[in-house]
Design a protein around this nucleic acid. Structure first.
Lengths: 172, 172
DNA sequence: CTAGCACGGTTCATTCAATGAACTAAAGTG
DNA sequence: CACTTTAGTTCATTGAATGAACCGTGCTAG
């Protein structure tokens, strides 16, 4: 692969994690799954990822136990990819990385902000709600557009995310 | 590059972060820098990374403001790479990812454990010390070998990390 | 003063993955 | 029956990763 194999000699939990989620595109696929993207075509439209790469990544993530592929309708048979509990736990490092990027790399501020859904508090320190004093799992969080959002993408998913949206909830 | 460019269309802080730290090897280089690795040769020995890739990554990280390259001795002139404050903040997502890997991918348990240096409390929930109620920055943390550590690597850095070691402190 | 060595790289041929366009296949729709 | 939607696969091309060899600087031992 391009990123992910051959870290075996590393004797390190981080290396093990990167073997599974460290390849190009993989974390963005997982991010989209957290936004509620579930279908091949929606990932494709939102990520501008080559089809072959998307197929490979989805298959690998299913094999790793991060995504679950399941039929959501017969006739025509259609499958969706949803995060497993293990996949949902990636919320913590993912949010931390996004917040780091928002602080240091986004001139105009973060593109998206995350809130504790039950109390409305902004999550700015990892996934910890300073108001409630609890760690907020993905399912209790809400995304809203942030100051840095340009809104240049025209796809379905991007448009849906211009509105506040509960994490994991299916994109229209 | 192989991972990192071309996420520009993404309008997302996570994508921006991955443009800088999402390439193969990059996060492992930063991890080593947090362990106190500073010299080209030590990164090389500990990571088993091709020399050309290491050069490229170090240069890119300096350009991104994550590492600082500075002379630590004249005659012979030698440079070291140390984390900037911005780089040190990657501690949060890095630790979160390592903990996720330790929970889900390490049969024998995590290879390394991290402790709040001032009180000795294990950091198991991101970088938050449950005893002191504070967020622990890298410089206040200590690494110790965990149950999953096999200790198969013979290089200087690996051997040094078989002992408790304060983060960021220079490896012997 | 010269041979060797440590360190920090660069160069280059080969391998392997990413890219993107085209094609396939199953099923439903008009 | 033609056409569309969805979810892929195939394939030629590009580009990065790999690993071995080489380079240059400045110490150090004989």
């Amino acid at each position: 692969m391009a990123l992910g194999k051959n870290y075996e000699g590393q004797d390190c939990s981080l290396a093990k994690a990167l073997e599974v989620v460290g390849e190009r595109w993989t974390l963005l696929v997982i991010r989209d799954a957290m936004y509620g993207v579930r279908r091949y075509g929606d990932f494709l439209a939102h990520l501008d990822i080559p089809r072959a790469v998307l197929s490979q990544r989805l298959t690998a993530l299913v094999a790793a136990g991060i995504l679950d592929k399941r039929r959501y309708q017969e006739s025509p048979p259609r499958e969706e990819y949803v995060l497993t509990p293990m996949g949902r736990e990636l919320w913590v490092p993912l949010l931390a990385l996004a917040q780091w990027g928002g602080r240091h790399l986004a001139e105009a501020g973060p593109c998206r902000l995350f809130f504790h859904q039950t109390c409305g508090t902004l999550l700015d320190q990892v996934s910890f709600c300073s108001h409630c004093g609890v760690r907020v799992p993905v399912e209790d969080a809400e995304v809203r557009p942030g100051p840095g959002l340009k809104g240049v993408r025209g796809d379905q998913v991007s448009r849906a995310l211009e509105e506040p949206h509960q994490m994991l909830d299916l994109i229209p």
